[in-house]
């Protein structure tokens, strides 16, 4: 179980890092192309934009694990430990239901967009819309694995970032 979780987290991290790297490459090459070679690609802007949206929704679960989804903690912290834990479990349940609903609506939205086209590349609008159900599904998986540690507020702090003292 633990190994499975590690694999999923590693894959998820690789996904968002690679997406960001591709987006960065597209935009940077487009600048070089326009300034240096007087050419720019009509598709670059749209592809970069839609990939970034995928990266954003796909990274939501990782942001949760790292405690980057900020919340106002005053009330839970004030409560006696038992009630605090109960409240945090309730928050987990609320997040789970919400993202499940959004994921389901996301699938219907993909269907809705399927017969429309994007402006530049002319692919089906349903394809970029897939970012929502994919992101919600990844979030639900991450939340399922991480729920217990979320309740204990035991977040993963990455080296190099906000780790001072």
């Amino acid at each position: 179980m633990r190994a499975l979780e590690c694999w999923i987290v590693a894959l998820n991290r690789a996904l968002v890092a690679i997406v960001l790297a591709i987006v960065f490459a597209i935009v940077f090459i487009n600048v070089v192309g326009r300034y240096g070679f007087n050419t720019s690609f009509a598709w670059a802007e749209e592809v970069a934009r839609h990939l970034m949206i995928l990266g954003a929704f796909a990274g939501a679960g990782l942001a949760l694990r790292e405690g980057r989804l900020v919340a106002i903690d005053a009330l839970p912290i004030m409560l006696p430990r038992r009630y605090e834990l109960a409240l945090r479990w309730a928050i987990v349940a609320v997040m789970f239901v919400f993202m499940a609903v959004m994921g389901w609506l996301g699938i219907r939205f993909v269907e809705f967009g399927w017969n429309k086209e994007t402006m530049s590349t002319g692919i089906s609008r349903g394809i970029p819309y897939l970012a929502i159900p994919i992101g919600c599904a990844l979030f639900l998986v991450q939340l399922a694995f991480f729920a217990k540690r979320f309740v204990a507020q035991d977040f993963e702090i990455q080296a190099g970032g906000a780790s001072v003292e």
Binding site: V16, L20, A21, A58, G160
Partner: peptide, 22 residues
């Protein structure tokens, strides 16, 4: 490794910002 971590971290921070915007 450091480069990969920098990209991952930037991507995750971006995700938390974009999620709020969305």
């Amino acid at each position: 490794r450091g480069l990969y971590d920098a990209f991952t971290r930037a991507a995750i921070v971006t995700a938390s910002v974009f999620l709020i915007v969305a």
